[in-house]
């Protein structure tokens, strides 16, 4: 079952002041399956937060359809199964950590006894239990983020939207938050993650989508997206890479990467196989052929540049 389904979604913010109308989302279509951690990437102003806000009924779409847990997003009662941590959230600062949990639990339609039962385990999960009776106005940014995550989980939601959850959190805290996300995934929860920290997305997400200027420009699993289809790394068991390059370098695009390693760029699988046949025919013993992987960050920069017509063009 798809937890999130978005079809041809467009949002145009009408003109205010001197600025003209802004197309925040432009015909976006995507879906998020149950029990996955989905990462939404994009530069500032790409439309990531707008997409999340439409899914939560905070922003109204101009056109298109958006469904959450199988229901149209305009049905506000569906949000009893949703958790949300917005970027730069503001809790009533006169409440304690425990008070925040109670308040949002009540708003989520939970019974008092259910709320009471969940507060301590959740605050323990985010390592905030000992601060639960402290007023949140004395909390640090990192503590507020941890409390924000606990708040998003108070109603035991099926789907959790987290906008920059590790913002202001130290490296150890970030690792702890990643562990929480993986634990939630193992419990069958679906997590929709907006983050600028690509390395974190790469570590925890199953699938990702990249938005730029309101358009969806790439979607797939992390594996699919970070694996190039054209470049392969070769390792040979005998001989040297220099010999291979001397023999086949004119017919194929090859680059030495070490004594017995080189990489090659091939337009298609036929040409790759033809190269392998040629090497085998020449008696070369191939140890491994691996599609080249790039980091999510490199891929992200490359995809954004491509969508904008290339760097410095």
């Amino acid at each position: 079952m798809n937890i999130v389904e978005v079809e041809n979604l467009t949002k145009i913010f009408s003109a205010s002041g001197k600025s003209g109308a802004v197309k925040a989302l432009d015909g976006v279509t995507l879906s998020v399956g149950e029990g996955t951690i989905f990462g939404l990437l994009g530069p500032n102003g790409a439309g990531k937060t707008t997409l999340v806000k439409i899914l939560l009924g905070i922003v109204r779409p101009t056109s298109g359809n958006a469904k959450l847990l199988g229901e149209d997003v305009s049905h506000y009662k569906i949000k009893s199964r949703v958790g949300y941590l917005p970027e730069n959230h503001k809790f009533p600062n006169f409440l304690t950590g425990e008070g925040v949990m109670k308040y949002f639990g009540e708003l989520a339609g939970m019974k008092k006894s259910e709320i009471e039962n969940r507060i301590d385990p959740l605050l323990s999960l985010v390592k905030m239990k000992k601060w639960k009776r402290t007023k949140i106005k004395s909390y640090s940014k990192g503590m507020m983020q941890r409390l924000g995550i606990a708040q998003a989980l108070i109603n035991n939601p099926d789907v959790i939207f987290l906008d920059e959850p590790t913002d202001g959190v130290d490296p150890i805290g970030r690792k702890e938050i990643r562990d929480i996300l993986l634990k939630l995934k193992n419990e069958g929860k679906t997590i929709f993650l907006n983050s600028h920290l690509l390395s974190e997305i790469e570590m925890v997400c199953n699938s990702i989508a990249i938005l730029n200027k309101g358009k969806l420009i790439r979607e797939g699993t992390v594996e699919e997206i970070t694996t190039t289809k054209e470049i392969y790394d070769f390792e040979i068991a005998e001989g040297s890479a220099t010999d291979i390059l001397a023999k086949f370098g004119t017919a194929y695009s090859l680059v030495a990467k070490g004594n017995a390693a080189f990489s090659g760029k091939f337009d298609d699988v036929d040409r790759l196989n033809s190269f392998i046949d040629s090497m085998r025919g020449a008696g070369v013993l191939i140890k491994s052929v691996v599609p080249k992987k790039v980091s999510l960050e490199d891929m992200f920069i490359s995809v954004i540049e491509d969508s904008e017509g290339g760097k410095n063009e």
């Binding site: 939560l56 905070i58 506000y76 949703v82 730069n88 959230h89 503001k90 809790f91 949002f104 339609g109």
Partner: peptide, 15 residues
């Protein structure tokens, strides 16, 4: 209606 506050309120099952 302040940003960060209204987002949270509207994300709850409340009209």
């Amino acid at each position: 209606l302040e940003k960060g506050n209204i987002d949270l309120l509207l994300s709850k099952p409340i009209s």
